[in-house]
Each structure stands twice: as structure tokens, then as C-alpha cells.
Nucleic acid binder design. Sequence first.
RNA 1: GGUCCCAUCGUCUAGGGGUUAGGACAGCAGGUUUUCAUCCUGUAAACCCGGGUUCGAUUCCCGGUGGGAUCACCA
Length: 477
Amino acid sequence: MVHTRFAPSPTGFVHIGSIYSVLLDFAVARKNHGKFTIRIEDTDRNRYVADAEAKLYEAIDWFGLQEDESSRKGGKFAPYHQSERLAVYQEYVQKLITSGNAYYCFCTTERLDQMRKDQQKSGKPPMYDKHCRNLSAEEVKANLDKKIPYVIRLKVPENIDIEVNDLIRGKIFFPSKDVDDQVLLKSDGFPTYHLAAIVDDHLMEITHIIRGEEWLPSSPKHVLLYQMFGWQMPVLFHTPTLRNPDKTKLSKRKGHTNVGWYQDQGFLPEAILNFIGQLGWTHPEGKEIFSLEEFVQLFKLEDVSPAGPVFDETKLRWMNGKYIREILSEDELFERIKKYLTLAISDQQLKKVIPLIKERLEVLSQVNDLLQFLLPEQQIDVELVKKQSKKTEEEIKKLLIDLQEALQTDEEWTVQSIELDIRNLKASYPDWGGRNYFMTIRVVTTAFPVTPPLFESIEVLGKELVLKRVESVINKL
RNA sequence: GGUCCCAUCGUCUAGGGGUUAGGACAGCAGGUUUUCAUCCUGUAAACCCGGGUUCGAUUCCCGGUGGGAUCACCA
């Protein structure tokens, strides 16, 4: 059975790149009727952030990429917090010691730092110098008895080529002389990622390891561990790194990495998933817009391009707008917009105005700018009216008085009747250019030069408020 | 610096030994429209370089170049 996993460390906010991994984990598992597990890699006590795990699950739910097994859902491989599995790692690291594939290291941090400094100075790659690799059993025992702090390191074999098989990159060979004797067990008794992940992936029967490309350089260590334990290697797939416009790894400073930001802006989870899904992968029919269900059905891991794509926010915005105006129903849009609306606007009014704003919305949070004109307290700027009309105060005043009259007597107050009122009135003002005429009315009634369609806007505003606004401008002229 | 990965328009990509190298976003120019958008039409824009294989390489191979990732008792 196919079994994928997402194994985050709870160290902060949820990264958009994590969602890329999760999407692939989810899709591969679903497509093959397998399972998708979330395992929390909380082995670093220093970087632990308490609410990170809750944030993660919140994001998972928001995107609709729910896992089958996890710390919150349980499962047959529980526990899913690595911090609760310490005894397991101790057991396996002992096996490595016994089989001669790992060794105790008593080097101090100071010595290690000095060593690296020296290596850097002489232009050598910083690597452990294997100082404790050949300690005799007696020396080890003596040190242990003296309670000298220690770590346990991987004994990387000398002079071999380690073969890593990546699904999309093929076979990659690493000379073992370039592979460091990695720390497997820290002096606090916690495992490092390298030990914990391999042990858990095996014990949890993970078949596909889907993780970021940044793990590629350390994968020979993982291959070695599988060999030493005599375990079968899962399929390895390293996801292409998402990039900033300058091609560097997507980062906080140069782009938006926090899923929370996308939520706040009013990006739709469907649109984000669609967008991420077509990075490195193309729909077989070349479709740009496709649902998660469709993606799950058609996606093939081996078809992903290995080149790291730039995360193009502009295209994401376009796609988000596309979802808003073409994919979501108006009822659905109404429910979602409500969550972003901070203006005091009634549900009834909002519902009415949605057809007017849906094609003007790229992200949901823009609704607050677009609906400013509906606020009753909105003041009309006379200077702006003058500027848009390109007429004298007297001429404007004359028009507005006629407008007031025309609207006053409109008993229907429908888009059609309002349009008729205003177009009929235009006939009496042949010397007003169409653009200036309508712009004047737009600013007087809505307060803004840029608004949804004029007659519809006036209708939604209501007769009372519109007349009040016209009146207010007349009085200021 | 060592190791490893990668390479088609500005961006996301399709394609693949013989193509007018296709699409999408962004750009530009028109059209629709009382504004802004939407929508429609058109336009400009790419196979990193050098060898080799071949009748023929953008496509396959090698080498450069460029970009990236990584080198912790972090994941």
C-alpha cells in the first residue's frame, strides 16, 4: 500500500513550500488509495514553538488536504510526535553501535568549532575529523564512566560511492569521502533528523518520501542508514525548490512564504492549490484551471520537472481572480467575502452588490476598498467633482438640481428607471461631454471616480442616501 | 571552496532528431464599456555556449558557462 508522510518540525508559521509537499503527499496517497500521515518532528527543543502544530492543522484543514493518520487523528503507528518516541531511537542507535556502524564521540563543542575554523581557513570543506572514530572499547567505557557528555555518530564507510535514487533525477552518486560522520544521537539523548526520520519512515511503513530538494545533499546518509539496518529503501522524491524572482530559495524577505499571509489577503485555497499544482507539472490536456479532484486523478510524481520554479505571485493573483469570477458561485462567494468584510454593510446589501464587484476582485480583502462607496457617512469632495466635470460651479449646480428633481420623482428606483432618469437628463445638457457628465454624477453619488457600474451602484445605495449626497454637494457649491 | 542538482519567451510551461517551437500570466496595441474591471482581437518575446553523434540537432552524448541547494549536537 502506498503510504506518504509529511514530517514538519513545529518551529513557526506554515510555509507555502510545505503546502506544496503536502499537496503531493495527499495526491499520491489518494490516487493510489493509500494513506497520508503527518508526523511531528519535534526533536529540537531549542526551536520548538508551542502553537506551530495547531497552525499546521489549521492550514491543512483550510486547504482541504486532510491526513489519514497524525498526532491529532491517531493511527496504528502512534505516537506521531517524535519526542514521544525517544526510546525507539535509543534502541535503534544501539543496534548501530553493536553492528559497528556508529560510534561514541566525546568531542567538545569548542574543539569542533576550532576544527571547522581551521578547515575553513585552509580552504577545506568543514567536516568532522573522525577524532573519536577509532576509540578503543576501554577508552569509550572509561569516558562513559566518567560521565563525559557524548553524541553518537554515523560511521560512514570509506572509499565507496553511495547511490541515491531520486524518482525524477535518477541515480546520483556521492563519494563517501564527502559524506560527514553525521551526529545521530545528540548529547541530550534526542535523535537528529537523520536518525529519527529513517527509523520512523521504516517503522511507519512509508513507501514514498516526498520532501524538499534541500534534503538531497544529506540523502546519502539516509541511504547508508537503510543499508546498515537492512531495510528496504522507499521511493525518494525531492520536490523542486520554490524560488524568489531572483531565483534564490523562496524567502520571507523577498516573497511571501507564510500561508497566513495568503489567507489574510483573501486568496482562495483552491486557487493556491491549482497554482501550486501547475508548478513543474502540466495538465495532460494543457488545462490551466483544474480542481483538486482532477489533480489527484491525473497527477503523476514522475512527470514533475526537476527545475525549481519561481513562485509568480502575479499569476497567482490572476488565477485567484479567475476563481472568484468564474468558479465560485455567488452564494459561495458571499459566504467567503463575509469573512473579509470589515465595513458595516448588511448581508442583504452585500448579496446585492456581489455581482457588481466579483469581476473587480482579485483577492477577497479588496472588498473593503471596493465597497467604501456604500458607507452612509462617506463625504463627497467638491474639488473632485469640479475636476471630473470640467465645468463651472454654476453649471454643476444647475445639473445637480435637475438631477435631484429627476431622482426625487422616481418612484420605481430600479436600475432601469434610474438609467432612464439620468439618460433623459443628459439630453438637456448637450454641451456636457458624456464622460464628464457621467463622471460628475458618479462622484456626486458614490464619492469615488472609480466604482462599480453607475446605475447599479445608485440603485444599491438607495434613494434616500443618494439624494442626501446630491443635496450635500449642492449646498457646498 | 567541496559535493550535488538544474538549464525553452520576463515568469509558469508544452514539445521533441526534420515544427511557422505551442499555450498561459505579465507587457504592448486595438475593440466593447459613462469610470475601474471583465470580455474579445491582435502583437512582441525563448530553445545558455562549444564540441561530438547524425543526412539533419533546440531535442541524444561530453565539456564549459550560468543559476541554485547544501556542508550544525536545525530540521
